[in-house]
Amino acid sequence: MTTTDLPGPVRLRVFTEPQQGATYDDLLAVAQTAERLGFDAFFRSDHYLAMGGDGLPGPTDAWTTLAGLARETSRIRLGTLVTSATFRRPGVLAVQVAQVDQMSGGRVELGLGAGWFAREHEAYGIPFPKNRFDHLTEQLEIITGLWSTPVGETFTYEGDLYRLVDSPGLPKPVQQPLPIVVGGSGPRRTPALAARFAAEYNASFPEIDEVPTLFGRVRDAAAEAGRAPDDLACSAALVLCVGKDEAEFRRRAEAIGREPDELREHGIAGTVDDAVDVIGRLVEAGASRLYLQTLDLHDLDHLALVAEEVAPRL
């Protein structure tokens, strides 16, 4: 398949977890393959510590990685799912993301979350505050405020946690507004933040039967905020493990250390028919984008199978 968008009613996005063990060259190969096959986006997690295993050769920084990919790809969209608000000061993050957006020609999306992995903060000396949602809220206010301040004017912010005085709000991203992704399963604060700041709400690794409820909460919050029903995209991130037949599916499940039955219950997994069925259920629930968590970064044939056998049937 040439470098064109994949067919179907839902955008398929490749999502990687490099903290489990990947070099920049590994990620470059996946991103360029995803672009060539027609996937809509390449996203990566933003973590500094492996969750099980040795994580060799060690972590890569998300925004350093995306800056490199911005210059080595041409069409595919790039982003994080998600950057932790605890990792960077909001002013610095606003500069980083705007610069990578410029480097990519306007292809970046910022996934921003409150952070949750206390052990990685401890391992790398990053403060892990108790009021992480307050940090996330103020960071969203600051980043959107900096980017939306007209050139020649200044931005001042006085919050409980952050204070900015007469910032020029530079540089500006190419995209105005640059899309922000807010995710989570909380019943109140997450939907409210998504409705207020986000272009997209993401449900990360939900139980598939719970997706309609999660999307419904966000749509209700968006309506209360005065947004049009189709103004806020809804998406889900789920593990991907598909084979052209049962034997290939089971081989791929073994390669990532997962049980086939568990994958079928919680992911986009099984044969091509199984994958098409699950994606259909998610689209029926309102998903317009799906993040396919790709755990074996060296199995590029896996992505080709999805592009060539699953996507055309959506």
Rank of each mutant, 00 (worst) to 15 (best):
M51R: 14
M51Y: 12
G52C: 10
G55N: 00
L56E: 10
P57E: 01
P57S: 00
G58Y: 01
G58S: 01
G58H: 02
T60N: 04
T60W: 02
D61S: 12
D61K: 07
A62F: 02
W63D: 04
T65L: 01
T65R: 00
L66M: 04
L66D: 02
A67R: 03
A67E: 05
G68W: 02
A70D: 08
A70F: 09
R71G: 09
R71A: 15
R71M: 06
E72T: 00
T73M: 05
R75E: 03
I76S: 00
R77W: 11
R77V: 03
R77E: 15
L78H: 05
T80Y: 12
L81S: 03
L81H: 01
T83D: 06
A85V: 11
A85F: 08
T86E: 13
T86H: 05
F87Q: 08
R88E: 06
R88H: 13
R89K: 07
P90A: 10
P90S: 08
G91Q: 10
G91I: 03
V92K: 05
V92L: 15
L93F: 14
V95E: 15
V95I: 12
V95S: 13
V97M: 06
V97G: 07
Q99C: 13
Q99A: 14
D101Y: 14
D101C: 13
Q102L: 15
S104P: 12
G105Y: 14
R107I: 00
R107F: 01
E109H: 14
G113S: 10
A114R: 04
G115R: 00
G115N: 02
A118N: 06
R119N: 07
R119P: 09
E120N: 04
E120T: 01
E120D: 05
H121I: 11
A123C: 02
Y124V: 11
Y124F: 15
Y124E: 08
P127L: 03
F128M: 03
P129I: 09
N131V: 04
D134Q: 13
L136V: 12
T137Y: 07
E138T: 02
E138G: 06
L140Q: 02
E141C: 10
I142Y: 12
I142R: 07
I142H: 09
T144N: 04
T144D: 00
G145F: 08
L146G: 12
W147K: 09
S148N: 13
T149Q: 07
P150D: 12
T154S: 13
F155A: 06
T156H: 07
T156R: 07
T156L: 07
Y157K: 11
Y157G: 11
E158D: 14
G159D: 09
D160V: 04
D160W: 00
Y162A: 07
Y162Q: 09
L164Q: 05
L164I: 14
